[in-house]
Design a protein around this nucleic acid. Sequence first.
DNA 1: AAAATACTCAACCGCGACACG
DNA 2: CCGTGTCGCGGTTGAGTATTT
Length: 269
Amino acid sequence: MGRSPCCEKEHMNKGAWTKEEDERLVSYIKSHGEGCWRSLPRAAGLLRCGKSCRLRWINYLRPDLKRGNFTHDEDELIIKLHSLLGNKWSLIAARLPGRTDNEIKNYWNTHIKRKLLSKGIDPATHRGINEAKISDLKKTKDQIVKDVSFVTKFEETDKSGDQKQNKYIRNGLVCKEERVVVEEKIGPDLNLELRISPPWQNQREISTCTASRFYMENDMECSSETVKCQTENSSSISYSSIDISSSNVGYDFLGLKTRILDFRSLEMK
DNA sequence: AAAATACTCAACCGCGACACG
DNA sequence: CCGTGTCGCGGTTGAGTATTT
């Protein structure tokens, strides 16, 4: 038994929206709010299917949309997020105020893909196109490197506050540095540092955020704790940590809920 | 100036997830 | 548990525009 279509295809307008249709839609949503897309077209007096109305509103008519070209910062953020999330455009868009998933998807396909390719980076994997060299390096002793999108280096102060130590975040995991040296050498020539913050936050402000950390030793997840981090500018992350035992505690990353930072299985809250 | 080609991006389509009876 | 309806997502299309030949 087939599913009934979302709307009767006959007697429906398709293609580009007219100014009058836009005005009807905006006016209806302003007075009645979003939602119930199925019944909206009839109520608003539009010969469009609900799907089409929803798309038009979300991608074009919403008042909070940002117009104009993408900034360099937005470019970088999109690349970073794509390296983590893949083609999850809606998740990426959630981190870029005023931008829609459709817009980012188009921008990715028309601009960023080309930009990365011109730098010798595979846009799908965010790794160098010359995979052969990388594979050879990976085979060498003690260079067991898992699939990696980018590496972020940060400085950690020990509990006494006396000593500082370099550490690396790879795919959300805090790693011992010797395990990622090879990746630093062979990785893409891009600044892929990622700051973690709640959605829609002004990145310029000093802010605190919380995340769980998992140390990797001998390829085993061996401990976890919650870390409070304070970000002051885009070039550094300082950490102060609080030990907790958090074997079953869920936490947020990029506005998502997950227990382990496995970006390939993230789900919306 | 005209034709061909490349590019952009709004809109469409099909599918999966989820809610509900 | 199953069938149905709705919503939202990601991939794709194609009309309009820009650039090149």
